[in-house]
Amino acid sequence: MTIENDKELAAPGVVRIGRTLDAPPARVWRAFTDPDELAGWFWPPSFKTSAALDLRPGGQYRIAASTPEMAVSGEYLEVEPPRECAFAWRWDGDDHTSVVRIELLGDGDLTELRLAHEQLPADAVDAHHQGWSDCLDRLPGHLA
């Protein structure tokens, strides 16, 4: 199940995406918070992704690709395992910082993932919506 951004109802500068995943919340949490796991699904394999995470409020993270050369980094703002985290998001070479919030709901073998990317410039909303959609489309295969 996919909940796509409803542009008529969404606040300006916000992307909201949801997924129902066939894995318990602790497993989905690990996919987002273990550097090796995150690097394994976040971008396509051809990107040769690496990730470094210091998972605590105030801790830094960096997700980088070598082909094409690009990276995003920031600071963890909230960390509540295995249910919620929020982090600042800044692309290398960009002066703008936005905020990503991830919430994992559910018990048992299913997780409802809710992602909100807030404080985006209006001209970046569509690209980030597409990027997060592509990214989250790879997650079920990784979890399987």
Rank of each mutant, 00 (worst) to 15 (best):
Arg27Gly: 06
Trp29Asn: 06
Arg30His: 13
Phe32Trp: 15
Pro35Ser: 04
Asp36His: 06
Asp36Tyr: 00
Asp36Trp: 00
Glu37Gln: 11
Gly40Phe: 03
Trp41Gln: 08
Trp41Leu: 03
Phe42Ser: 00
Phe42Tyr: 14
Phe42Lys: 00
Trp43Ile: 01
Trp43Ser: 07
Pro45Met: 05
Ala51Leu: 03
Ala51Asp: 02
Leu53Phe: 10
Leu55Gly: 01
Leu55Asp: 04
Gly58Asn: 03
Gly59Ser: 07
Gly59Glu: 04
Arg62Trp: 05
Ile63Ser: 05
Ile63Trp: 07
Ala64Asn: 10
Ala65Ile: 07
Ser66Pro: 02
Glu69Ser: 15
Ala71Met: 12
Ala71Ile: 09
Val72Asn: 13
Ser73Glu: 15
Ser73Ile: 03
Glu75Cys: 14
Leu77Ile: 14
Ala86Gln: 15
Ala88Val: 03
Ala88Thr: 15
Trp89Thr: 01
Arg90Gln: 15
Trp91Cys: 07
Gly93Lys: 08
Gly93Cys: 12
His96Phe: 06
Ser98Ala: 14
Val99Ser: 01
Glu103Asp: 01
Glu103Lys: 06
Gly106Asp: 04
Gly106Thr: 10
Asp107Cys: 02
Asp107Asn: 08
Asp107Ile: 06
Gly108Arg: 09
Leu110Val: 04
Leu110Thr: 10
Thr111Met: 07
Arg114Leu: 12
Arg114His: 13
Ala116Val: 14
His117Cys: 02
Glu118His: 10
Leu120Lys: 05
Pro121Val: 07
Ala122Val: 15
Ala127Phe: 12
Ala127Cys: 08
His128Asp: 05
His129Leu: 09
Gln130Arg: 14
Gly131Ala: 13
Gly131Phe: 06
Trp132Thr: 00
Ser133Asp: 09
Ser133Val: 08
Cys135Pro: 08
Cys135Ala: 14
Leu136Ile: 10
Asp137Phe: 02
Asp137Thr: 05
Asp137Cys: 03
Arg138Leu: 15
Leu139Arg: 13
